[in-house]
Each structure stands twice: as structure tokens, then as C-alpha cells.
């Protein structure tokens, strides 16, 4: 019996060493560990052995089987990489189990990106009403009734003195009349103009920003906007400032960046100029300060306003502004 066990061990070791594929592995398993395998038979023969030898032989057979099982498992690991893999083959090319996730609207994503840059520069965030008074939307911003600049704002009216704000600039007056400089504020929000075509929607989003203190200069405005554009687009994005006109800033500037589509060579997007207008800015007009009882001889400041949809269009290459408000999942999933 003992000899039979030792022979079995030798034989098994030889067989084990010869295994080179999964099929052989399986036939080895059946041959040695199956119900009709040698161990089962040996155990059955145990009854025929002398009574005093039985425990010793039984223990020996068990140890032998365990050791063989161990070596077999090692072989199996060597051969297929893992024990489990010896079961039904796992198709690792199947997709992972992704719990569905939603996304933020691209306008929100860009708006948050813009706000984060200015928050990083220490600007507070303020919000105001969408339905504004004529006073805050126009009068307080040095746009009296019958001012030609009102033509620049196609205004939705609720009544004679109430309207949907045409820009986020009313927040300049709203914040300044309740707080004292120094002020560093951005005001994101929805604005409305009665204009609708492939490049205009009657509602869109702006971020207004302003900074008021003693000795704030146009050079500071340029510096802050340069930081913003470098972070929003690319450190190497070329910028130009050119004169423009807003009744609530003086000097007023329009800020262009080198066309992100053609790199400044000129294309359809930039109307062959190589430049894209991305924001309006300027030094806050003394008249605006007077309306909120700031002394323009003491304080100066700058303000800027940018259109969120336009920046999203440039960054993401969106070519039709109307897509923003259709909330088509095929659109929303892209960002």
C-alpha cells in the first residue's frame, strides 16, 4: 500500500510536469482527483490494510493528495494566470459596468469656469434679478431715456419702467449702492434681448465683473483680463484692446483674442480678420459713480462683461447658438 502510494506520487509528478495546456490540466484533474481516481480507490483499499497501519496510511494518502493538489494548483496558476480563469472564460472585452452619469449644461460648465478664474483672483460672486427696473438697467448706467445707446439693447419690456435685463451690468449699481470700496465682484446671470437668429437667442448668459478702489487704472484692467484670457484659453493667446463705446465706461474697450479657429490667419469664423471679439470692458464712468454717491475723484474702477454662449461656442466649436436651449440629449452628452 505504501509502495502503491509512492508509485502514485511519482507517476502523478511525471504527468503533472508534462501538462502544457488547459485540456491536459482538466484530464489530470479527472484522472487523479475524480470520483474514480486512484486516491478514492486507495482509500477504499484502506480497509484491507492492517488495523494498526490504517491511521498512518490514511494520513499519508491524505497528505499526498493535498500536496498533489497544491502542486496541481500551482501548475494551474502558472498555466492560465489564475485559478478562477480555469472556470468559464471571462470575456474581458465587455464594457465595464458604468452607472449612468449626467452632465452639466455646457453654458453652466463655461460659466463656472469663468467664475472660478475670477474667484481665484479674489472676486466675490453676486446675483441679481432677471426682471429689472429701467433705472438699474439704463439710468444708473448713464443711459438716460432717448439715449442712442438704447438702440444697442433690443429690450423686452414688462411695462414702461420694468424690463428683462439686457445685460448683467445693473449689478454694478446694485452692489455699489449697498457697499463701499474696495469692491471686486463678478455677477453671472441670464440676460435678454429681443433678437433671434443663428447667432442670437433672445436669452443668453453674461458674466459682469467690476473692481473699484482708489487708483485703479486702465493698465490694471488690461492686466486682469490678460490673466483671465490666458487661463480661459491658452497662455499664448494673443489679445488686443481697441476703443469702443459703452455709456457706463470711459475709456471703453472691446477685447479681441486671436481667432481660436485659424490661429489668426483669417477664416470664416473671424470674418477673415484673424480676431474674435470676446468681451467689452472699460473704466467705470464717473456718472455711474455719482449715481451711487461715490466720489469719482477719489475712486476709480473698471468693469467688463462677457458672453458665456460665445465663449462656449469658441471653446467647444458649437456652430448654432439655438442648440443651447433645445436640451437635446445628443447635444448635452457631448460636453
Amino acid at each position: 500500500m505504501q509502495d502503491a502510494l509512492l508509485r502514485l506520487q511519482q507517476e502523478a509528478d511525471t504527468d503533472l510536469a508534462a501538462i502544457s495546456n488547459a485540456d491536459q490540466l482538466e484530464s489530470f484533474r479527472v484522472k487523479y482527483f475524480g470520483r474514480k481516481g486512484p486516491f478514492t480507490q486507495l482509500m477504499r483499499q484502506l480497509g484491507a490494510a492492517p488495523k494498526e497501519d490504517r491511521p498512518k496510511l490514511g494520513k499519508m494518502a491524505n497528505e499526498l493528495k493535498l500536496a498533489l493538489q497544491g502542486r496541481f494548483d500551482e501548475k494551474k496558476v502558472d498555466l492560465v494566470g489564475s485559478l478562477a480563469a480555469a472556470g468559464p472564460q471571462l470575456d474581458l472585452s465587455l464594457p465595464g459596468r458604468q452607472v449612468p452619469q449626467g452632465k452639466l449644461h455646457p453654458v453652466t460648465q463655461i460659466m463656472e469656469e469663468i467664475c472660478a478664474i475670477f474667484e481665484g483672483l479674489g472676486f466675490s460672486v453676486a446675483e441679481g434679478p432677471d426682471i429689472e427696473t429701467d433705472f438699474y438697467n439704463f439710468e444708473a448706467l448713464n443711459i438716460p431715456a432717448h439715449h442712442p445707446a438704447r438702440d444697442m439693447h433690443d429690450t423686452f419690456y414688462v411695462d414702461d419702467s420694468t424690463l428683462l435685463r439686457t445685460h448683467t451690468s445693473p449689478m454694478q449699481a446694485r452692489v455699489m449702492e449697498t457697499a463701499e470700496p474696495p469692491l471686486k465682484v463678478i455677477a453671472p446671470g441670464k440676460v435678454y434681448r429681443c433678437d433671434s437668429d443663428i447667432t442670437h437667442t433672445p436669452m443668453f448668459h453674461q458674466v459682469e465683473g467690476f473692481l473699484v478702489d482708489k487708483n485703479v487704472s486702465f493698465a490694471d484692467l488690461k492686466g486682469v483680463l490678460r490673466v483671465f484670457i490666458a487661463k480661459m484659453f491658452d497662455e499664448s493667446t494673443a489679445i488686443r484692446f481697441r476703443p469702443s463705446y459703452f455709456p457706463f465706461t470711459e475709456p471703453s474697450a472691446e477685447v479681441d483674442i486671436a481667432c481660436v479657429m485659424c490661429g489668426g490667419k483669417g477664416c470664416r469664423v473671424c470674418k477673415k480678420t484673424g480676431w474674435l471679439e470676446i468681451l467689452g470692458a472699460g473704466m467705470i464712468d464717473p456718472e455711474v459713480f455719482k449715481k451711487v454717491n461715490y466720489d469719482p475723484e477719489v475712486y476709480s474702477g473698471f468693469a467688463f462683461g462677457l458672453g458665456v454662449e460665445r465663449i462656449a461656442m469658441l471653446k467647444y466649436g458649437i456652430n448654432d447658438i439655438r442648440l443651447y436651449y433645445e436640451n437635446d440629449l445628443r447635444f448635452l452628452r457631448q460636453f
Binding site: 452607472v99 449612468p100 452619469q101 449626467g102 452632465k103 452639466l104 449644461h105 453654458v107 453652466t108 432677471d130 423686452f156 428683462l164 441670464k190 435678454y192 433672445p202 436669452m203 443651447y324 436651449y325 436640451n327 440629449l329 448635452l332 452628452r333
Partner: peptide, 15 residues
């Protein structure tokens, strides 16, 4: 939280 719950954000006109 809502995006992690599988919801996409919509923005509709206020009017």
C-alpha cells in the same frame, strides 16, 4: 449630486 444621479442639466427660456 444630480449629475451623479444620471441627470443632465437643461436650460430653458425664462419666457
Amino acid at each position: 449630486l444630480l449629475t451623479s444621479l444620471g441627470c443632465y442639466q437643461a436650460i430653458n427660456y425664462s419666457f
